[in-house]
Simulated scan of single mutants.
Amino acid sequence: MVAGKNSPAAQPSEVAPELADENAQLIGRRVRTLRGERKLTIAELAAKASVSAGIISQIERGSANPSIKTLQRLCDALDVNVWKFLDEEKRGGAGDAPPFIRRRAQRPRMVVGDKGLTKELLSPQYADELRFMFVTMPPGSATEEMLIGAGQKAGYVMAGAVELTVGEHTVLLEEGDSFQFNSDVEHGLANRSDQEAKVLWIISALDVRL
């Protein structure tokens, strides 16, 4: 689930074409594959996800990268978590690794917003209920439309300083500080400084789509 899920259907303005082209191509391939596995037409998926067929067509062609809100609607419609769109079943160079290993070269990567905030998944492909990732935050960047649902989130500030908001509380965290909270509370991270920040982000989710 995500805040705002019942808001009006997504419009083309929700598509963020400034994000990395590589992400757009990978998401497009995965959406098309998952839609095919479920034997859905573009129009049927659009209706289930409450987005326009035009946006889905753009996404599948790799010509546009969806916002977090649009991605979450597609997650709900296809019954997968958001990383399923960025994690291909076969990635080169991982043949020597057992399924509980994630090689550095095979990390799925998501670029969010015009400031270049980057999320890199560290968990292996099969992990559902527990995931962890690196969040790299350039100066002035902030998380957008954080996913809300049953479970917990935690983290450790590896470098720099970030502003963490959980519900009504906003706290400045510096290198070496850590946190943990229930993920059904509105929350967000922001880097108000002039230096890059890096956070190890952990999700223990009861809803595997988070």
Rank of each mutant, 00 (worst) to 15 (best):
V2K: 03
K5S: 14
N6E: 14
N6I: 08
S7W: 07
A10D: 08
Q11P: 00
E18L: 08
L19M: 06
Q25G: 03
L26H: 00
R29D: 11
R30K: 11
R32W: 00
K39Y: 01
I42C: 07
A47W: 05
A49K: 10
V51E: 08
A53S: 15
I56Q: 01
I59V: 07
R61D: 04
V80S: 12
V80K: 10
N81A: 10
V82P: 02
W83H: 09
F85I: 04
E88T: 12
R91F: 05
G93T: 03
A94T: 14
G95R: 13
D96P: 09
A97K: 02
P99D: 14
P99L: 08
I101R: 10
R103A: 01
R103G: 06
R104I: 04
A105L: 03
Q106K: 09
M110L: 15
V111L: 05
G113P: 12
D114I: 05
K115F: 05
E129K: 12
L130Y: 09
L130I: 13
F134V: 09
A142C: 11
T143E: 03
M146T: 06
I148G: 02
Q152D: 10
Q152T: 08
K153G: 15
G160L: 04
G160S: 09
A161I: 01
L164C: 03
G167A: 06
H169M: 10
H169D: 15
L172F: 12
L173W: 10
E174T: 15
E175S: 11
D177Q: 05
S178F: 10
F179L: 14
F181S: 12
S183D: 02
D184M: 12
G188N: 00
A190V: 00
R192A: 11
K198N: 08
K198C: 13
W201V: 07
S204A: 15
A205D: 06
L210M: 14
